[in-house]
Design a protein around this nucleic acid. Structure first.
Ligand SMILES: [Mn+2]
Ligand SMILES: [Mn+2]
Ligand SMILES: [Mn+2]
Ligand SMILES: [Mn+2]
Lengths: 219, 219
DNA sequence: AAATAAATTTAGGCTAGTCTAAAAATAATT
DNA sequence: AATTATTTTTAGACTAGCCTAAATTTATTT
C-alpha cells in the first residue's frame, strides 16, 4: 500500500491544513516532520504522482480526497490505539502517543475494526480528539480554549492543544483531567492568567499560556 | 534499535538453526526470506559487523547470544500478539499470523509486558508454539508428530509443523484442534496413513503427509 | 586428481528516503 | 522599480535493502 513515510507525510499535511485552513508550505511540512525542505520537495513530487496531493511548484499543497482518506485512516488508527492502550493496558494519557505512532501503520482492516468494537466504538481519544469512523467522518468539535471564556463561566474540559508529555504531566500534577468541570473564578487583567475551580473542589492558578492549551465547552 | 529487516533476518536464522541444529546456509536464509542469495550475503556482513551473528565467508552463520536475544524477543512478541488477536479480537488461528508479522516489530517494552499480563501470561501461542518469557527462556517441547506414534496410542494434540492457512483450515474442516484427544485406531502399512479418533467421538482418515504436520504427546 | 556442479560472494546498479549546497522563484523592503 | 530576504527547488551524494550477472570457492563426480 503506502509506506510508513508516505503515511506520515499525509498525516502531517492533513493536520497542518486543519491549522492553517489553506495550502500548506514546504517549510511547515519540513518543520512538522523534523526533516529538511529539500526532502519534502522530493516527497511532494512522489505524492503528487500518486494523486494523493494537489501540488504545483512554489504554490503549497492540499490533500486530494484520496490523500485525505489515507490521512484520516491513519489518524483513526492512531487514536483508537491510544484509547486501547489507555483503557485496556493501563497506559497513562502521556504515554500513549509514542507507541500509537508505531501502531498507526499496522495494515489490517479486520484488526482495526475489532479494536474499535473491543473498545465499544469510542468517539474521542485520551486527549479529547475525535476518532474518525471507518468512512473517515469526524464528529465536529466546538470546543474553545479556556482563554476565550470569561469570569463565572462553567465549563467541561474536553481536550488539549499541546499534546506533549510535559504538558500532560503538568495537567496531572495540577489536577486537571478530561471531563472535569472548570469554573472561571477570576481573570487577571494584567497577564490574562486564570483562577479556576476544578470539580467544585480545588482552586488553582494557571497562566494564559496554559489556558490557551486547554479546550473546554460551556456546561 | 534494529530495522524490521534485520529483525526478520535474525528470526529466520533462529528458526533455521532450530531446524538444522548447526550453521545455516546463505541459500537457506534466502529461501526463507524470499530473497536472493546476494542480498543475504550483504545482510550477513551487516549483522556480523553489529556482532549479531557469527559469520565467516562460505562457512554459514550462527547467532551470537546478542543476536539470539533479539530473535527471541521478536518471536515472543509475534506469539503474544497472535494470542491477543485470537483471545481478545475473535481472530481464527489461521488469521493471526500475517498481522502478527507486522505487530512483532513494534518497539515498546511496556506494551509487550502489558499484553502479556492482559492475556494472563500464556505459555503457548494459538498454534501450540511456546512463548519465550521476558528473558528469552522457552518452555521445552517434547511433542512429536503423530506419524511417530503407533496403534492404540492415546495422545493430546499440542501443535502443528505446517503453519499455512491452507493446512490450518484443513484441520478445522477435519475437526482437529489444539488440546483434542487423538487415539490412533489404525496405521495403514502400505502408505502410513492413519485412522484416528478425535475426542472419543469422530473417526477420520489422514494421510502420512498430514500426520507429519500434527504434533502431539502421549496422554 | 581433474572435471563438473552447486553454493556463495563480489561487482555494479536500482529505488526510497535522506542530506548539503547552490540555483531559482517569490515575497518583502527600501 | 530595484534590491534584499525568504522560501522553494534542483543537483549531487549518501545509506539501506534489493536485484542480476559474473567471479570465486567449496562440494561432488568421474
Ligand atoms: Mn497522539
Ligand atoms: Mn506515524
Ligand atoms: Mn505465526
Ligand atoms: Mn516479521
Amino acid at each position: 500500500m503506502h509506506s510508513f513515510t508516505e503515511e506520515n507525510y499525509l498525516k502531517a499535511i492533513y493536520k497542518l491544513t486543519e491549522q492553517v485552513g489553506s495550502e500548506v508550505s514546504t517549510n511547515a511540512i519540513a518543520e512538522k516532520m523534523s526533516t529538511k525542505a529539500a526532502s519534502v520537495t522530493d516527497m511532494l513530487k512522489k505524492l503528487s504522482d500518486k494523486k494523493l496531493i494537489n501540488y504545483q511548484k512554489y504554490q503549497g499543497v492540499t490533500l486530494t480526497s484520496k490523500g485525505e482518506k489515507v490521512a484520516l485512516s491513519v489518524i483513526r488508527k492512531h487514536r483508537l490505539w491510544e484509547m486501547f492502550l489507555l483503557e485496556k493496558l493501563d497506559f497513562k494519557w502521556d504515554e500513549v502517543h509514542d507507541v500509537a505512532e508505531q501502531l498507526e501503520h499496522i495494515n489490517s482492516d479486520k484488526l482495526i475494526e475489532q479494536i474499535d468494537k473491543f473498545l465499544n466504538y469510542p468517539k474521542f481519544d485520551p486527549h479529547g480528539d475525535p476518532i474518525p469512523d471507518a468512512n473517515g467522518k469526524i464528529q465536529a468539535q466546538k470546543s474553545k480554549s479556556i482563554a476565550h471564556y470569561i469570569k463565572n463561566d462553567v465549563l467541561v474540559m474536553t481536550g488539549v492543544v499541546d499534546h506533549t508529555t510535559a504538558f500532560l504531566q503538568y495537567l496531572d500534577k495540577t489536577g486537571i483531567a478530561l471531563g472535569d468541570e472548570i469554573k472561571i473564578k477570576e481573570v487577571v487583567f494584567f497577564d490574562r492568567s486564570l483562577q479556576i475551580t476544578i470539580n467544585k473542589k480545588t482552586t488553582v492558578f494557571i497562566s494564559n499560556d496554559v489556558a490557551k492549551n486547554i479546550l473546554a465547552i460551556k456546561k
